[in-house]
Design a protein around this nucleic acid. Structure first.
Length: 277
DNA sequence: ATCGTGACGGTTGAT
DNA sequence: TTATCAACCGTCACG
């Protein structure tokens, strides 16, 4: 997509790109403010993000400990893995008259699959029709047997980073403050290679929410999740290491977020009829 | 006034 | 290369 995306303006005057996640800086800010005791409705007004979105992001954070959006796009993992195909083939070899539904039952009873990933009868029929008799190619095999998801994720991330232009660069032109501007206390963003994204964890820190971080954002959210992963939902929000004021950024994120209208020659935010207290 | 939720229109990426 | 599909997104409106 070469065409710059200008996004849309919501009822609060905030800018968003339909279909795309909010920048991580905003997501982070939402969680930061919530941890400081700011009410969701106030966060919504302050950051000009719909309360539904604030609610969703906080709920997700409480549940997973991650501020990152989920994986967008892609397909569900396939159930007809080489191992399953192998078993189907074995059943068929053993009993050529076996029915697909019997194979399905055997896959379950033999523990090859569970109820969540057992292929449908039609899938089994298709496998019997198309695959039995031919072997899976090595690449196909590799596709399912890569036991090193982090390495795969890193590769995917590298590829994604190399291939995609920053999604929000034109639209959310975050950048490190110029030398004349005091560096804000940076919200700590996870390094690309780190698997932990929840707040309050000691992490290597870049001192700005920026180029580096936004470069990470350039990767698809799917890749981002591959790279960063979601924290296991073990800690409820209250158990996260409390954030200190040193960790809390100033209002700059919000300001930047809104300032970018002017960077792209958009109209200023609509009258703040929803901003009144 | 606040907040949870579902519909909606949109994007994305694997197949 | 293109189309399809199913995941996700944030906004909006409703209760």
């Amino acid at each position: 997509m070469e065409q710059p995306t200008f996004g849309e303006v919501n009822q609060l005057g905030g800018v968003f790109v339909n279909g795309r996640p909010l920048p991580n800086a905003i997501r982070l800010r939402i969680v930061e403010l919530a941890q400081l005791g700011v009410r969701p409705c106030d966060i919504s007004r302050q950051l000009r993000v719909s309360h539904g979105c604030v609610s969703k992001i906080l709920a997700r954070y409480n549940e997973t400990g991650s501020i990152l959006p989920g994986a967008i796009g892609g397909s569900k993992p396939r159930v007809t893995t080489p191992n399953v195909v192998k078993h189907i083939k074995a059943y068929k070899d053993r009993d050529p008259g076996i029915f697909a539904w019997e194979i399905r039952d055997k896959l379950l009873s033999d523990g090859v699959c569970d109820k969540y990933n057992v292929p449908s009868v039609s899938s089994i029929s298709r496998i019997l029709r198309n695959k039995i008799g031919g072997n899976s190619s090595p690449t196909h095999q590799q596709q399912y047997e890569n036991k090193n998801p982090s390495a795969a994720a890193a590769a995917a991330a590298a590829a994604a980073a190399a291939a995609s232009p920053p999604i929000y660069n034109q639209f959310y032109p975050y950048s490190c403050p110029p030398p004349s501007v005091p560096t804000m206390a940076a919200p700590q963003m996870p390094p690309q290679s780190h698997g932990i994204t929840h707040l309050g964890t000691k992490q290597p820190v870049s001192n700005c929410v920026t180029p580096c971080y936004m470069r990470a954002w350039a990767a698809s959210s799917h890749s981002m999740n591959d790279i960063l992963g979601f924290r296991q939902p073990t800690q409820p929000m209250g158990e996260h290491t409390p954030m200190t004021h040193e960790n809390i950024s100033t209002n700059m994120i919000g300001q930047n977020y809104n300032m970018q209208y002017y960077n792209v020659n958009m109209k200023p935010p609509v009258p703040a009829m929803y901003l009144q207290n």
